[in-house]
Amino acid sequence: MQFDQILQYSLSGLSTGAIYALIGVGFSIIFNATGIINFAQGEFVMLGGMFTLLFLETLKLPLWAAIPCAIVASTVAGLLFERLAIRPLRQATPINLVIITIGGSILIRGLAMLSWGKDTHAIPPFSGDDPIAIAGATILPQHLWILAITVIIVIVNRIYFYHTISGKAMRACAYNRRAAGLVGIDVHRMVLFSFIISSAMGSIAGIIVAPLTMTAYDVGIMLGLKGFCAAIIGGMSSGIATVIGGLLLGVLESLGAGLISSGYKDAIAFIILLLILFIRPQGLFGKAESERV
């Protein structure tokens, strides 16, 4: 009985963890390109779900068309956010910019509340909701969608950052911004790219999780913070470390909620965050003296 339960909680934890991973990688990409923590990241997750709903219900598009439209709309929102809120203040210190992102997130949330109301909405699952049995546990098709899409995005990300010249240029900015400028890389454009990529990733996370958890104007706060935890566990790496961080967080949270009490679900995430910050601020896998450029 106990084993079945653990398996069940772990499986559902993995899919929530995958969502945290996607959001966390979004945090890391922006952090590496700009040195700021974009606390508006969670709002793009929310926008992904809400825009899907808009295209689905108000504009009556089929699901397969509503999803790409929602990703595009959220990405445009990310682009505008960088252009209107971050770029004009480029000379500002990181701490000012971080506060701007908090302000931005409150604004986006407020606008979402005004446009869509305070209700919680559901998005239909991508391929039905007949549970699939796996060794005594059951999962939903949507869980599989989440895991598959996460894996694909992580792979595409990896290829982009390590095997294309544009991705290399972005990494170069993260390592040494001054040298990047000197070889003709337009650092400001790379910052814009980083916002585009992470808002797209955030919105995808928001869309694939919405059929399971429902969506509302304020889901971005919690999801954003959990994604931030994942990024911290991963040492703000935009690669596999943050993905593992997200999965770990998801599984621990789910086990804790299932085996101890569901009331502690969110507390577990933040206890992990605090422990990491106290004991290994460089991330679970980071080298102690590693310097982030």
């Binding site: 290829i159 982009y160 294309t164 010249i165 544009s166 991705g167 240029a169 070889v183 890389i185």
Partner: peptide, 18 residues
Amino acid sequence: MVGMHTKSSCGMLSCALK
């Protein structure tokens, strides 16, 4: 390779989509 970045005509989208 990053130094040769300016000579690359490949945009972000086509790079990302490989």
